[in-house]
Design a protein around this nucleic acid. Structure first.
Lengths: 346, 346
DNA sequence: GTTTAGCACTCTAACTTATGGAGTGCTAAC
DNA sequence: GTTAGCACTCCATAAGTTAGAGTGCTAAAC
């Protein structure tokens, strides 16, 4: 694939994609020259377009329609043509404003982030809750519900609170539980969940060394408490926003998208993926990749606080969305949410 | 409105509604006599249908289509014609099975209840989380995040856990907080949230009598902690299920419904309403009432545990849904969820 | 008086048939 | 290499047609 696109091709490709983003209609050679003051005749543009089609950057829905960007076209546009502006400071300010009077609960903060993303972009906002793994434990509490049923409340440095009810094998008295709690807080506070799990495994391995049955039991309970945390949960806000896009006049595509939202699994997968990489990631739904969100793209960025909690947020919109504003929006929001989490830690 | 429907009218109305529920198409006189072994000619049936239309139980989309039940028609059907079967015990068993291996977190339980309702009915499940008001306090914990920021964890007898971060006016030390916690648990444990609020108000009124500033402050904090709880939150599961219904081939209606789901406010209102009444409630969306869910109905029932937590759950489906199976399903589920909550209390 | 058969009438959904417009690809001239 | 010109293609829209289902009314039958 050694096709170097020369300047003219690039220009025309860019013009086509930008037109298409605006109109959603296939763009033809005539309209293009008119709108973009290109110093070429439609015929010449047609030749270039035919080349671009051969190379896979464009496609035509049918013989006598204009051209539409392909996934490859978008990719090239995103990688090489798009100049990303900074979000204007007025907009930054107004977004910050939205977060100002927020309640301070982690979950609500993230839900709200999704809503703000959605409202600001008029597409759909998605937010994935940080996994506990890299989260630093501030405190872990056991609350005795009955002899064998124990409520575990886990609080991270970032103020994430998770709770879970576990069934203990052995009945435990109030005072035993208190003792266990004290021990755990003393031992675990300041460690990440990962480190805690590690520690538990190591201690359990030396099981024979542990003569203290309460201690052994305590470790067992904490192990149960920390498995399968809630992290990775995904909030979807403003799902219906996206339905106003003309591409969703197709009932089936619409249903498919809604189903994807309902199941969430694809989103979890994608959001996870983009957590592994720095910066804004863009996933383009096409027939080959992510066909469930065909016609849509996900613009995602992960946010993280200084102390480790890392989640991902983003916007799902039609593939033909104005990336030049959506990308900075997602980028800015990720940073903002991260810093809000930081402040909550202090 | 003193229209007594005679036996024949009732029979025909019932037949029409049942046909319509099955097919979703306007039903005509001919088809009706054929399918229902009615000992009357189509012409006679037509006369009856015309009467029923005059009385407002039926409507015709246009001159030469069959008849469709109106909201009034459905109401009459539900109130006077429908014989509700018990859920067959095989089905009960299989539903119980679904709940068996559930994690024990309240929130997950309710979410799952929504999912099971949705899957079993192939419509959309909704669940409203119990409000704290009537909930009995088991325990209330303060966790110090920083001098002024405090995490409050509230645990009800039913195992509902709510948490919230509040900002204290005065900085509090670890030990002061401990003292406050002990005081609160001692005082509040076993009271309902309502009672607690009452108590706080009374105590504050005697403010002058409270020389102990820590005590005053503690009360203030708990007051903050208990206002605007999370209860009333609504989970919607399987929203896309309902889209497969033929009535949602209409794009606009579909969008409207999705928007209603997104906003949730109408659902909150309806679910609240049905919390005030015993048994299964049915809300029929029509142009006049609840136009946001036009073409849909909500079948709802509240569930409650012995100790007070009361929420509501239900199914949203097309108005022409098979009530004879949906109603018992909702009824049974409400009872089941209530009893699961009871067990969790034990 | 109620019920029914018959019939003219209505309305829709589905199919067919024009028609205009937008756009292409090719060729030949610049 | 670029462009004008032109024949051709395809879609969207509108208009016309038809078949089917259903109604309302009337007059006869029970």
């Amino acid at each position: 694939m050694n096709e170097e696109l020369n300047e003219r091709c690039r220009q025309i490709l860019e013009a086509i994609i930008e037109d298409y983003i605006l109109s959603g209609e296939p763009v033809g050679s005539r309209a293009l020259t008119r709108r973009h003051k290109i110093a070429l005749s439609p015929a010449t543009v047609r030749n270039v377009m035919a080349d671009l089609e051969d190379m896979g950057y464009l496609a035509s829905p049918h013989t006598s329609a204009g051209r539409v960007p392909t996934e490859k076209g978008y990719r090239f546009y995103l990688d090489s043509l798009l100049r990303i502006k900074q979000l204007p400071s007025s907009k930054r300010q107004s977004i910050r404003e939205h977060y100002r009077h927020r309640g301070l609960r982690m979950e609500e903060l993230l839900r709200e982030a999704g809503r703000i993303l959605s409202a600001t972009s008029s597409y759909t906002g998605v937010v994935m809750v940080p996994h506990l793994a890299t989260t630093v434990c501030r405190r872990i509490d056991f609350v005795r519900l009955s002899a064998c049923r124990i409520l575990v409340v886990f609080v991270s440095q970032t103020g994430i609170v998770e709770h879970k009810i576990i069934e203990s094998q052995l009945p435990l008295s109030e005072s035993e539980l208190q003792e266990a709690t004290n021990y755990l807080n003393h031992t675990f506070s300041g460690l990440t969940v990962q480190e805690i799990k590690q520690y538990i495994v190591e201690q359990m391995a030396e099981e024979k060394a542990i003569y203290d049955s309460l201690l052994r039991h305590t470790l067992q309970l904490s192990s149960m408490a920390l498995e399968d945390d809630l992290g990775g949960q995904v909030f979807i806000e403003g799902a219906c926003n996206i339905l106003d896009q003309p591409e969703f006049n197709d009932l089936n595509r619409m249903k498919r998208l809604m189903r994807t939202f309902d199941q969430k699994s694809l989103l979890v997968e994608l959001l996870h993926k983009s957590q592994l990489t720095e910066g804004v990631q863009i996933y383009i739904g096409s027939t080959e990749h992510y066909s469930d969100i065909e016609g849509c793209s996900l613009v995602a960025a992960s946010f993280s606080s200084r102390r480790g909690a890392t989640g991902t947020l983003g916007i799902i919109g039609p593939t033909r969305m104005p990336y030049s504003t959506v990308i900075p929006l997602v980028d800015f929001t990720a940073g903002l949410v991260g810093s809000i989490l930081d402040n909550e830690e202090e």
